[in-house]
């Protein structure tokens, strides 16, 4: 049974005098991987940063319209609680340099001052690192600094950091664009495994990546939602000519 977990309604947002996204109406389905695609500057990053209200951090940022999480308007929620339910992974892996791997996984708890018993902490670290397939690689090096690893491992650590808080949704902003092909495949496999328990929204400009892992695709162009639908349909028989041109590489 597919249900909508995020509903974006008549939503626009931008910075200062320029509008980045306009009149977006979109429903994200639970426990599916939705890819948000489009050429550079089409507003995809702005869109997902609105979902966890990170957009507001920018100077002169504005928005209009509503976004609902499980029926509740996110702009009426406490941002702190919202961001624990919706996690974010950024383009460049950024584990906290002053924390060990162990501490990085628990960063969400540590920074928020949430005290856990040692058994609880150990359990979370082991489970989460196993989920991101890092456990075997780092279990003997948990007390090393979080930045001493390859890009792919660091990015999986960042995903673990988010997973440790048991979010309902994970937003990923081009998470593999700075990684090598092997790490990219590792992350993609990971996301496919995770979707059973977490809804995934991934921004990507890599068309083949989207075709590999996405269940649904939203195509943005110049700030507007051009097309949205199941990925097989979008890739094989897109309705909008612009979508087709983008997917066949005519621009991007």
């Amino acid at each position: 049974m597919e249900s909508e977990i995020i509903k974006i309604e008549d939503f626009s947002a931008g910075y200062g005098n320029s509008i980045a996204i306009k009149d977006i109406n979109l429903g994200i389905l639970k426990n599916k991987i939705t890819a948000i695609m489009g050429p550079s500057g089409c507003g995809k990053t702005t869109l997902i940063r609105c979902i966890n209200r990170m957009h507001e951090l920018n100077k002169d940022a504005f928005h209009k319209g509503n976004i609902y999480l499980d029926g509740k308007n996110i702009f009426e929620m406490n941002t702190v609680l919202l961001r624990r339910r919706i996690g974010m992974v950024f383009q460049k892996p950024n584990p906290f340099p002053h924390l060990t791997i162990y501490e990085n996984v628990l960063a969400g708890y540590i920074i928020n001052g949430i005290k856990l018993r040692k058994e609880e902490r150990d359990r979370i670290v082991e489970e989460t690192l196993k989920k991101v397939a890092l456990w075997e690689e780092v279990k003997d090096k948990l007390y090393l600094n979080g930045t001493q690893f390859s890009g792919g491992q660091q990015q999986r650590l960042c995903i673990a950091r988010v997973l440790a808080l048991n979010p309902e949704i994970i937003l990923l902003d081009e998470p593999t664009s700075s990684l090598d092909p092997k790490s990219t495949i590792e992350i993609e496999n990971l996301l496919e495994k995770l979707k059973n328990n977490v809804t995934i929204i991934i921004v990507t400009h890599n068309i083949s990546q989207a075709s590999r892992i996405a269940d649904y695709v939203a195509f943005l162009y110049l700030g507007e939602l051009i097309e949205f639908g199941k990925s097989e349909k979008i890739f094989t028989a897109p309705e909008n000519p612009i979508t087709e041109e983008y997917l066949s590489g005519k621009f991007g």
């Binding site: 990170m54 919202l82 996690g87 950024f90 969400g108 928020n112 950091r161």
Partner: peptide
């Protein structure tokens, strides 16, 4: 780098924390 501030905020931490 600002990205560290962002990462922390996106984990649900308040700005002062």
């Amino acid at each position: 780098p600002f990205s560290l501030i962002e990462s922390s905020l996106s984990l649900g931490a308040t700005y002062p924390r």
